[in-house]
Amino acid sequence: MFRLFLFLKKYHYFLLFIALQFIAFLFIYQFMSYQRSLVFSGFQNFTGNIYSKISNVKMYFRLRSINDSLLAENVRLRELVYAVPKIDRPDSFVKDTQNNIKFKLKFAYVVNNTINRKNNIIVLNRGKLDGIHNQMGVITDKGIVGIVTHTSDHFALVMSVLSEEFRVSAKIVESGEIGSLSWDGKSPENMVLKDIPNQVKVLRKHQVVVGPYSRFFPENTPVGIIKDFNISSNNSLIEVKVKLHNKIRNLQSVYLIDNMKALEQAELEKNADEK
């Protein structure tokens, strides 16, 4: 204590100087924005790095919710896209777009997924309580995935495009030719487009999309590109090998498409069959 007192007595002048300078610089820091910004920018390189690392980690935990919100927005935008009528003539006049909302979309995450069976299935994390019902089409941004076949309260079972029962009408974009797309059970990357007439010019890398007759998918939903083709045995039809855009084994999130007018279409077709 006494030593401290001696120390203070000896250096009180210098200590007072330091104290007053400290107060002055405190004021400078507190009130002078330019000087303060300099102090900050000095620390900023240091703290900024740390904060950006922390926020990267935080971001990682928030990815799911960010993804959810993005998917929800995509659903809304896709509905709008599907609602826009095809205008053939630029001077044509669209009366009412409300009636055009033919497709309602929802999104879901893939829970389980098979690719090695004859009839492959995909399980989604949404069910009846989320408004999912049978016969909804399932797509991703890249292409078609399947059709909902069973639903429970919280899950939905999807018949994958990699099923031998699966059929969808498909169209080659460049030639406009329409055929029936199915899976031959061989490779999970390829499907087969049948019923293409012999005289149609088919080339590799041509795009294949969903045709106009599908009840489950909007027209022009992408499917894949032509990988290979061969003339089948009876010589009048071509079998086209289509490479899917989607990698079914890596699916994470999908959109479910509810065709509002599917029931109407189905009833009409049924009536036509009966007659």
Partner: peptide, 14 residues
């Protein structure tokens, strides 16, 4: 200029 002249003056006196 809160603090600037105070700091300089204290140095001067010191």
């Amino acid at each position: 200029t809160y603090g600037m002249h105070a700091a300089a003056s204290v140095l001067l006196a010191f």
